[in-house]
Nucleic acid binder design. Structure first.
Lengths: 369, 369
DNA sequence: ACTTGACATGCAACCGGTTGCATGGAAATC
DNA sequence: GATTTCCATGCAACCGGTTGCATGTCAAGT
């Protein structure tokens, strides 16, 4: 088969952007002339058709599905049988319109590729599923503008929203909370239900651990300025180092990514620090690479501690990290949101999960001691 | 603040499962008595209210938003102004009900935590966004049952669906394709539009690369049985090794995960192979760890090649891998789906993207040569 | 001045369910 | 046997938009 330009009819429009990608091959035929031959789509069976088939009113069909106890068992049976044979499936949209509930909840995260989020997302989805809710996931790529847009777009189609590590301003978040039920993850705004990973205990242990190993001068490679977690971790470190008379340098990064960590290494080394605490594991992993590139051996020459503990033993050497329960956070946030939806009342709940340091192979005695 | 049991009213129901998680603290108050004091939610402004305010019929308001060219500029202006001051925002659900299009598309993946998917998802979301579509993401956790369920639940709320690396049977997929527009990723079913990563070229190069390095006996740590990519990669390897008279062992795994790779190492070593090709990068990374645990040095003692090339330099040593364009795949799949929705006709398109080997630091001369 | 069109807007049906209220028949009560 | 009660079911309005068709107005054409 020869690589050919994409000329399949009714699809060419997308050509421009597709051509730029890679070598590719397209084969196949269109069904432009016989639109019905390929896959014929079954059009929706409505409640009225079922009603006719079963010889009852539309309302009875509706009740057979939603409140079967209101009908006699035989009628229910007859209706369900008719529905079955016709292949009836309730129209979600119509139901949503009249009841006001569509059984969807939204989950918005800043970066789906950050390993912190997948477990959280997965747990959220599982929890929602238990209550027959569907999770719509949004990814903001760390952009507040994109986040605002996504929230707006989701607003009409979900009953409630979970914002994880939101990069929006307090005002924007409050504004959205006025539109629909909101639960925050790692964002502490009074009056809005929130579940937080309280890193302070873990970070305190991290500083203590480094102090015990003889490190006197350390650096914190920070996360996004809009991140609550970042502020919290930073101040916990500052408190810890100050209390022990250690020197602390703060290294800013544009976003918590592998690349950013790698690029932060230069600045870190300039500070003369012998150990670093990174905003998250991904950043720490980048730092690990940046150090390796400079032939600095971890942990012999340099110690690293991450946060989130989501990479675990997947780095080399295995990363010492501040552990949290990212999956739990997702599950709890959804659970809170569902409860709000059920009770139709918002409690000012602030749920904080504890953290602790998990020591692995990236921390050791400070060099020269 | 003392850790306290969660007794916040209207939220206790979830207590059982939350208690089991970790140390936690809850503070805050409920607004049970003054449900309106905290965050007062604005209820929806309808088209009728805008119509009244602007002194026109409901239909005109509708047209002001959807077909402004049908109205006189002044009327449009007046209506928009009224809508603005009232804070009107069109009800997505109602619109969907009457038009039949809700502007959502679904994307279902087997494992969101597998680094292959995030770039794909991100690209899909961006592409959908360009056409003002919203992506609903589903995660099946590698379970066909869960996948079936998700598809069913999505069916009512999305205009079309992209199934990435589906684990469903051909029959189930065909059945779903009868219900709504479907585009497949890495699944080759005739009659259903699909975009495929054709690993054969890259895998061929991988085998050749290993052969040139003097490896005579290699292993393939395979992926899910239901995976098309797995079958394809396996047969490409088999063809390559057979052609060169190399010995090949196939090691099965339950799922393409880090853990599975790590556990596969024992079987791999039993085969006496000096090099391994893994189904994907995640599996390869697991193998890397499994080898390190046994003090087998890569690439001196053993060579590894992954597939997908999504970890890039994030492993140590940096992983040699068969590259593909996972982001492109996501973008193209969405673009195809949108085209199908626009044209309302399904073409039997088969779009295959090429791959090539990217050599890094996990492959070297076979030991003893 | 009268017809013809074009154009702007309103009317009302419709999308596919849900639900408060009315109705009718059977069972229970006196 | 007449009256009350209860329960199963139907009727019709409603959710909030969209859209085909009818209507009315005003300018152009003859």
């Amino acid at each position: 088969m020869q690589p050919v330009a994409c000329q399949v009819e009714g699809w060419q429009n997308a050509g421009a952007k597709i051509v730029e990608t890679a070598a590719f091959m397209v084969s196949g035929t269109t069904n432009g002339e016989f639109p019905e031959t390929m896959i014929k789509r079954t059009k929706g069976v409505t409640i009225s058709q079922v009603a006719d088939a079963a010889g009852v009113a539309r309302s009875s069909v509706s009740r057979a599905f939603t409140r079967p106890d209101m009908l006699s068992p035989e009628t229910v049976d007859r209706i369900l049988r008719a529905a079955e044979t016709l292949g009836y499936v309730p129209n979600h949209t119509a139901r949503a319109l009249s009841t006001g509930r569509h059984g969807n909840i939204g989950l918005i995260v800043p970066d789906i590729a950050n390993p912190f989020f997948p477990p959280l997302i997965q747990a959220a989805q599982t929890e929602a599923d238990r209550s027959d809710f569907c999770v719509f996931l949004g990814n903001t790529a760390e952009s507040p503008k994109q986040e605002d847009k996504l929230v707006g777009r989701f607003a009409g189609q979900v009953e409630g929203l979970v914002l994880a590590s939101s990069r929006l301003s307090d005002e924007r978040i409050r504004a959205h909370a006025r539109q629909l039920p909101l639960v925050l993850i790692n964002r502490d705004i009074e009056g809005i239900p929130r579940v937080l990973i309280d890193s302070s205990a873990g970070v305190r242990q991290a500083v203590e651990h480094l102090a015990n190993l003889g490190h006197r001068r350390i650096a914190y490679v920070s996360g996004p300025a809009a991140s609550w977690s970042n502020k919290q971790r930073r101040s916990a470190i500052r408190a810890g180092t100050t209390a022990r008379g250690m020197e602390l340098s703060i290294i800013p990064t544009p976003a918590p990514t592998y690349q950013a960590g790698r690029e932060a290494v230069a600045s870190v080394l300039q500070t003369g620090a012998s150990a670093v605490v990174a905003f998250d594991d991904l950043t720490a992993q980048g730092i690990l690479t940046g150090l390796a590139e400079r032939n600095i051996v971890v942990p012999r020459d340099f110690s690293i501690i991450g946060c989130d503990d989501v990479l675990g033993a997947m780095t080399f050497p295995a990363l010492t990290s501040v552990s949290n329960h990212s999956a739990d956070v997702g599950r709890i946030a959804i659970s809170m949101l569902l409860d709000i939806l059920r009770s139709r009342s918002v409690a000012d709940v602030r749920y904080a999960l504890d953290t602790k340091l998990v020591i692995r192979d990236t921390t050791a005695q400070a060099p020269g001691r």
